[in-house]
Design a protein around this nucleic acid. Sequence first.
DNA 1: ATCCAGGCGTTTA
DNA 2: TAAACGCATGGA
Length: 285
Amino acid sequence: MTTSIKIRQTNNAVQVSGTDIDLCKTFTCGQCFRWYADGDGWTGVVRGQVLHAVQTDDGFILENTTVSQFQSIWADYFDLNKDYKKLIAPQRTDPFVERCFQYGAGIRILHQEPFETILTFILSANNNIKRISKIIEALCREFGSPVQYKDKILYSFPTPVQLAGVDADDLQPLHAGYRDKYVLDAVRKLQNPQIFNKINSAKTAEARNILCGIKGIGPKVCDCILLFAFQRYEVFPKDVWIKRIIHDVYADEFEESNLGKYAGIIQQYFFYYGRADKNATISYP
DNA sequence: ATCCAGGCGTTTA
DNA sequence: TAAACGCATGGA
């Protein structure tokens, strides 16, 4: 995938070819919560900018952007310069890994914004994906900035400054429940942008210490943040679905240390596969 | 009605 | 250090 990507400008859009990305899987696999099926494709707001993405046979069209912007931002956002098949090749000798890899072919780990990812995954704890999306949408509508695209008005994810003054009463309309106080603690501790630089330059263990100093961030939420916003592909977040797989498929004998530097990518294939049929009993091939 | 969701903080043993 | 428990909310 790495070398064969081609991009070209068409009006207010960029046509990308030579990538195996599957937009539907990528946007619905539980890593992000603000991309919506919309007409012929998907609409999202990223970095305060509305994007509309349409799947094609050998890639996708990204509307409302330019080639230079694509090269500087979106190629990295969609993680197009990695060959996942190659990166997890040693682990694909495991039949279950291979099965999940085949099933989730086309998933890419999005490189998301730190502040948004931190708040999002604080809100995700002991919650379900549909309701997480709902809460985040309310958060953006209440505190973000309106951005127009064609005939629609959408809302950017609020910045730390936009949330600086909020209190528990302000958050009540989100119906986030007991997570309100965690969000408030995170907002307060993330006012100084230096903390993002510190996490970025820290080793993963130290980055964990910093993030877990925020209320509402424990081991699992922390690992999602590290994987989805800080490009720590070696972490392997263990939520209820992953634990279920470790139990049902591997009989609780699972060597996480064998997953390699890109364990997080494998984790995402597992998650997508495990969640696909929520009532299915998963068994080892 | 009871259980569950991309778990965590606090208390108890 | 480990296990138990409560927690807001809404859909199944």
